[in-house]
Amino acid sequence: MSLLNVFQISASGMSAQSLRLNTTASNLANADSASAPGGVPYKAKQVQFMAAPLPNSGALGVKVDKVVEDNSPPKLLYMPGHPQADEKGYVAMPNVNPVEEMVNMLSASRSYQTNVDTMNAAKSMLLKTLTIGQ
């Protein structure tokens, strides 16, 4: 039944958007992490969405295809007193762009809300359908 598929579609959208929000939170929290496992500064991460068919129905949902790392060079800060400074006094800081992350955060949150609205609309339609014959 196609109206019940709407629930699955919206749920897939919501989980994809919340993963995007997670990634943004991780990026913002690590905006100043000069070291990460492996000794290199933290690299900003972005999710990549993909339209994917849902199990047991022909409907098309959305899923996170992969999480990609931003490979742009780290920001170099001049901090000679820092324990991780190189011989010239520069510390490699994460390549996180806070402005970009804030925009991503707003976009993910809005898209999440839209999916919730979609689900609520489908729910009220189904409830209305149940009133047939009453």
């Binding site: 196609s2 109206l3 579609i9 919206s10 959208g13 993909m50 339209a51 898209s111 839209t114």
Partner: peptide
């Protein structure tokens, strides 16, 4: 409605 929901879910794909 299902098709439109798919569009909304894939707004960022």
């Amino acid at each position: 409605q299902q098709v439109l929901a798919t569009n909304i879910a894939n707004a960022d794909t």
